[in-house]
């Protein structure tokens, strides 16, 4: 399944994530998943938002360099080896390169977890995951 992700460029400084969260809080947009990647100088905050379009507009208005991308999301069993067997191994076997991924657990407390994936070949990855 494809899902919209909002990413924001931030300088690696105290208080930057806080500013992003304040914007979202003010607009009452909840965050379903979040990951922060960083280098020594800057970072990229990636988020799966309840309302990605409003989130993007609000962050831009607040002056953040932001973008929205369609990326893959897959449901995996919340058991040991779940990510490996359902996602990582099939993609690796097919030669699909994973650029980043992060996971979150759906609120309802079931036995499923969600994983968000950025790959080099989204079409191929999608087919493989669908086929499983």
């Amino acid at each position: 399944m494809r899902i919209q992700q909002v990413s924001v460029f931030v300088e690696n400084q105290p208080g930057r994530l806080e500013s992003i969260l304040e914007v979202l809080e003010e607009k009452k947009i909840s965050i379903r998943a979040l990951s922060v990647s960083d280098t020594a100088e800057f970072g990229i905050v990636r988020m799966i938002l309840e309302d990605p379009e409003l989130g993007l507009v609000s962050l831009r208005d607040a002056g953040f360099t932001s973008r929205m991308d369609w990326i893959l999301s897959a449901e995996i069993p919340d058991v040991p080896g779940g990510l490996l067997k359902t996602v990582a191994k099939p993609l690796a076997d097919a030669g699909v390169n994973l650029k980043y991924c992060y996971a979150y657990i759906e609120q309802t407390g079931g036995d499923k977890a969600m994983v968000v994936l950025k790959v080099d070949d989204i079409e191929k990855a999608e087919q493989i995951l669908k086929a499983l």
């Binding site: 992700q5 990413s7 460029f9 990647s37 280098t39 800057f42 990229i44 990636r46 831009r60 360099t65 932001s66 973008r67 991308d69 650029k99 980043y100 950025k118």
Partner: peptide
């Protein structure tokens, strides 16, 4: 300043 035209969600591309 990083503009949206060059901003990527991938660290690799930014580097």
């Amino acid at each position: 300043e990083v503009s949206e035209a060059v901003f990527s969600d991938e660290i690799q591309k930014m580097e």
